[in-house]
């Protein structure tokens, strides 16, 4: 796969399905700027041959990325990146991130340890999501 911009790796112990791992790795590469508009994703055959995984797994991942508008399949040529994720992520969310940092400092001052902070965040996140549905 040396000629491609990125290589995929599978973590068998992660509990994340192989197709989702591929989707996440492409998204990450887009966020980090490793993949840019116009870049070609590795062909299904090359991914399959490198990872010993089912071709349908790769196709499914690429279809999902296409559905999200991140890549486009060009018949007979391959799958190409159509959009980047670099601009609307970390840089754009700087203010939010600062708020979160301030909140974290407060939480620590209040005596919460890592696990409690995570638990507090998750329960709040979930109940907020519930309220949005209701």
């Amino acid at each position: 796969m040396g000629l491609w911009m990125i290589e995929f790796h599978l973590d068998g112990r992660s509990g994340v399905s192989p197709y989702q791992q591929i989707v996440q790795q492409v998204r990450n590469a887009l966020r980090l700027g490793l993949l840019r508009e116009g870049d070609q994703l590795p062909t299904v055959k090359d991914v399959v041959a490198a990872l010993a995984i089912n071709p349908n797994t790769v196709l499914k991942a690429y279809r999902e990325l296409e559905h999200e508008g991140l890549v486009q399949a060009r018949p007979g040529r391959g799958t190409f990146v159509t959009r980047t994720l670099t601009d609307n992520t970390l840089a754009a969310h700087g203010p939010l991130r600062q708020d979160l940092r301030r909140w974290l400092t407060k939480a620590r001052k209040a005596g919460l340890d890592d696990e409690s902070i995570e638990a507090l965040f998750l329960t709040t996140f979930r109940s907020a999501a519930q309220e949005d549905i209701a």
């Binding site: 055959k45 399959v48 089912n54 071709p55």
Partner: peptide, 10 residues
Amino acid sequence: LQDLMEAVAE
């Protein structure tokens, strides 16, 4: 398994 999967893709 790599070769088998490659054949399935081809």
